[in-house]
Write a protein that binds this DNA or RNA. Structure first.
Length: 388
RNA sequence: GGGGCUGUAGCUCAGUUCGGUUAGAGUGCCGGUCUGUCACACCGGAGGUCGCGGGUUCGAGUCCCGUCAGCCCCG
């Protein structure tokens, strides 16, 4: 890929390497994304409890939304009629849509997977729908995200080899159909970029096969690595990531889907992965857990009752610049809505900022030392040394 | 002065009719969990001389007597 192609819409511009780790810029129709990067999750076209202005202020450059959920409600055609997802949710920076492949896994009770596609029963009203790779492309095209993910099958993390192999097979067949339908839909203009998803469970050879077959199909500017952090042992996840990383083309951005917690992000960055998404910062935030550089903390703890310090000393986020731990704890204990916003913003800032700092460390060639130092602090202090 | 109702977990109350394992619930308190979001959710823990004192009984939160406290009614 030429330098010009890397800078074109959809291209990934690799700027620096430090060991296996990379720093780069992802160029998309609605702007660029500096990597490594964390993408806040906005499943239903909104990052729960956080406004677009707040997302911008905390430094998010791209958010994720979900095709499956938006198809069911309010409907992708409705979103398209109202000017597309960017306008609908008032977010003018890049958006990546997930296909709904993960929902095949997470909502497995109410669906049937076949070669044709997936029969879902709506979790909202019980109505039945057949989701095919072609339909997923139509949904994601209508929503208008900058990056759209191919429809994949995401088996449970402890799936046996046969199940994982079958998921690779089906994911590949669906990818071919996605490519075909996507080409028809975007024949006139190419503001969207499609990325495949590598599957293969915890079997490194299946992972390589999945990647190989996807790259045989065509050149890609990005690769999703899916089917991880879905119940498999953590060691197995990192073995897969380490085995797959050298085989991934340098010219494509690597998206590790669904990961994760601060530690996992840094380890994955070190292995050469570039972008991430995870519900952890927002969901944990809503449930009262704050990320801090010395580990996650339950803010409802009695120890915070009269703590006048910020959630994290030195944190540059909106929440920490205003509120004391005692106040945040009070908001949670009292069941106040502001509590959800305060911690969601803090946790998102924490991860976005962590990636920003990892990027700087890569550009300065000091990632390993920085990560080791960071991990040494994280969780080093027992639960929490009450600050002041 | 007479009569009635109520006293069980920090709080609000079940359980008392017709006695039967370690007395329950909700809430609060304390703690844990959450990885391409059905989720302000889920899981767990601590906490009670059943107002007090007698009696009956193999066995009493439950039955009997006395007593204290709160509320109500009648004089």
């Amino acid at each position: 890929m030429s330098a010009a192609e890397a800078r074109a819409v959809g291209g990934f511009e690799l700027q620096a390497r430090d060991g296996a780790a990379r720093a780069g810029i992802l160029h998309l129709a609605h702007g660029s994304v500096a990597t490594p990067a964390f993408m806040p999750v906005g499943t239903q076209g909104t990052v729960k409890a956080v406004s677009p202005a707040e997302l911008e202020a905390l430094g998010a450059e791209i958010v994720l939304a979900n095709a499956y959920h938006l198809y069911l409600r309010p409907g992708h055609e409705l979103v398209q009629r109202l000017g597309g997802l960017h306008r609908f949710m008032d977010w003018q920076r890049p958006i990546l849509t997930d296909s709904g492949g993960y929902q095949v896994f997470s909502l497995a009770r109410i669906n049937e997977v076949s070669d044709e596609g997936v029969w879902f029963q709506s979790h909202i009203d019980g109505s039945r729908h057949c989701i095919t790779p072609e339909l997923v492309m139509e949904i994601e095209h209508a929503l208008g995200a900058d990056v759209i993910m191919a429809f994949d099958e995401c088996p449970p993390g402890r799936a046996d080899r046969e199940t994982a192999a079958r998921a690779v097979e089906r994911t590949q067949a669906w990818l071919e159909r996605c490519v075909e339908r996507f080409a028809e839909l975007t024949a006139d203009r190419a503001t969207q970029t499609l990325w495949p998803v590598v599957q293969g469970g915890t079997y490194s050879d299946l992972r390589l096969e999945s990647l190989h077959r996807a790259t045989e199909l065509r050149d890609w500017r990005g690769f999703g690595v899916g089917g991880l952090s879905v119940g498999e042992p953590k060691r197995a996840m990192f073995e897969v990531l380490a085995g797959l990383s050298p085989a991934l083309p340098e010219s494509g951005v690597r998206y590790l889907m669904g990961v994760g917690y601060p530690k996992d992000l840094l380890e994955a960055v070190r292995l050469g992965y570039d972008i991430f998404d995870c519900v952890a910062p927002t969901r944990n935030g809503r449930n009262g857990t704050a990320f801090t550089s010395s580990g996650p903390v339950n803010v409802k703890l009695a120890a915070w009752r009269e703590d006048g310090g910020p959630i994290e000393n030195g944190c540059g986020c909106w929440s920490c610049s205003r509120y004391s731990r005692a106040y945040v704890r009070h908001l949670f204990v009292a069941g106040e809505l502001l509590a959800l916003r305060v911690l969601s913003i803090h946790n998102l800032y924490f991860l976005v900022d962590l990636m920003r700092r990892a990027r700087a460390a890569i550009q300065e060639g000091r990632l390993d030392a920085w990560v080791d130092d960071w991990l040494g602090r994280y969780g080093a202090e027992e639960v929490e040394s009450v600050s002041q």
